[in-house]
């Protein structure tokens, strides 16, 4: 009667088939369009920073969202990262619906469409892979905001310049973790150096190769934020009922 499956390594394994029969039939996310991260970037920099989001571990607590705001002095109503949360109808199962959460932030794309559009070359990809905005040069034209396929950019209404996730470059340069990673309650956000073969990030990516996905792979942006547990229905624009959230105030 006693049933003790052997512990599974990080990344987990499917539980034994003997279990869960009473709730059987729950569709499992099928693996498709898996993208394996490009190995080390051209040797222009020692580092190539990237992130892995293990959706299975995300609890939708928005600690990342708020810590990012506090760390980076993001104005009210704007977000560099947010965890979209969904109620998803489940078919063929006793369970009628389920919760799906999806942390979103700038993907620090290797082919970032936000970069070439900039009329003053204020935004660029650094040698270490981080896509940033030079706020001394940005004219606030918002062209990059339009060009980002992930809604990852916005105009900061306090600085009147383009704003986005910087992978907390100021912390990373100081040998620290980005704020959202540091405070991720579920431990879903894993940050590190894609070029460091012994780093936790690289090891997790390698160990979960077949589970990895990125958002909107068809756009050819080569995101450097990878996901485990990314349901296909959420890789692009989500088909469904939109949020009731409304911007609180307009800026003027």
């Amino acid at each position: 009667m006693k049933h003790s499956p052997s512990p599974t390594p990080a990344g987990g394994a499917a539980p034994s088939a003997s279990r869960r029969n009473f709730l059987r039939g729950i569709p499992v996310i099928t693996a498709a369009a898996a993208t394996v991260p490009t190995s080390a970037m051209a040797e222009t920099s020692k580092h190539h920073w990237g992130m892995l989001v293990d959706v299975r571990k995300c609890i939708g607590c928005q600690a990342c969202t708020v810590s990012c705001i506090q760390e980076n002095v993001v104005p009210e109503g704007s977000f560099r990262t947010v965890v979209s949360t969904y109620s998803v109808k489940v078919k063929d199962s006793v369970q009628p619906a389920g919760t799906y959460v999806l942390p979103r932030l700038c993907n620090h794309c290797d082919e970032p469409p936000c970069v070439p559009v900039c009329p003053v070359s204020a935004t660029y990809k650094r040698a270490d892979g981080i896509v940033v905005v030079n706020n001394e040069r940005c004219v606030g034209c918002a062209y990059c905001v339009q060009a980002c396929p992930y809604d990852a950019r916005f105009i900061n209404h306090e600085t009147n310049k383009a704003d986005k996730c910087t992978f907390c470059a100021h912390r990373v340069e100081a040998g620290l973790l980005p704020a959202c990673v540091e405070t991720c309650v579920g431990g879903a956000r894993i940050f590190g150096d894609l070029n460091d073969p012994n780093g936790v990030l690289r090891q997790q990516l390698d160990a979960n190769k077949d589970k990895l996905k990125v958002l909107k792979p068809e756009q050819g942006t080569k995101p450097q934020v990878y996901y485990i547990g990314l349901d296909e229905r959420f890789t692009g624009k989500v088909e469904g009922q939109g949020t009731l959230w409304k911007p609180r105030a307009t800026h003027g």
Partner: peptide, 23 residues
């Protein structure tokens, strides 16, 4: 995600206790 836990939340409402990435 990493351990051996299966869990059931018996609740009139669906909450953040559930996660479809580990169905």
């Amino acid at each position: 995600a990493q351990g051996v836990l299966d869990y059931v939340v018996v609740d009139p409402v669906l909450t953040n206790a559930d996660n479809r990435a580990v169905p």
